[in-house]
């Protein structure tokens, strides 16, 4: 059963790894991805980023993504923690942990989890620039491509044009 959390507070990476591995001797490797706030966006300095989400749906989507990974790579442990609210450069945003008997499964599952999280969990980022401007981050086609390489089709994805003539 995966650990899935959305929170304003920072996370303790060591404590989260320990929570996955403590008392277990069947785990051979734990993959870890930590997303952090970068100081620039497209070359422009930012002072902060605000993360908004859809309470309820976010947790459901994250749990569904974790369930997919657990089944596909027979994971022995899985953690997804995503922060919301105002975050400054250097701050942690997201933690992904995937524990498995062997490294390949642990590393692949970690990549899958962050790729799918970026395209299937309802979070939105707004960047606050040093010059006072602010802008919502646009979805990147590179993220779509990264998520698509794991298959799974369009079920559970948000990439569906709603407005006539919509881009997407």
């Amino acid at each position: 059963m995966a650990t899935v959390r959305v929170q304003q507070a920072d996370f303790d990476i060591g404590a989260e790894v320990a929570a996955v591995t403590a008392g277990r001797t069947d785990i051979g490797g734990t993959g870890c991805f930590i997303g952090t706030v970068r100081e620039t966006a497209d070359g422009r300095p930012i002072t902060a980023m605000t993360l908004e989400h859809y309470p309820g749906m976010t947790e459901r989507a994250m749990a569904a993504i974790a369930e997919q990974a657990e089944a596909r790579w027979s994971l022995l442990g899985c953690t997804l923690i995503h922060r919301v609210g105002r975050l400054t450069p250097g701050a942690n945003i997201v933690l992904v942990l995937a524990a498995a008997p062997h490294r390949q499964a642990a590393l692949e599952a970690t990549a899958f989890l962050i790729d799918w999280l970026k395209t299937r969990a309802p979070f939105w980022k707004k960047e606050h620039f040093a010059d006072g401007a602010e802008a919502w981050v646009a979805a990147r086609v590179e993220d779509d491509a990264a998520a698509a390489r794991w298959g799974g089709g369009t079920a559970g994805r948000d990439r569906r044009t709603m407005a006539p003539g919509g881009s997407g």
Partner: peptide, 26 residues
């Protein structure tokens, strides 16, 4: 009702319908 939907998705009385931009978390 907290599942991604398309233009053809039916809506029924009492449904929760959310509109938003493409997601950008992670």
């Amino acid at each position: 009702n907290q599942e991604f939907a398309g233009p053809e998705t039916p809506i029924a009385p009492g449904d929760e319908v959310a509109f938003f931009p493409p997601v950008t978390g992670g």
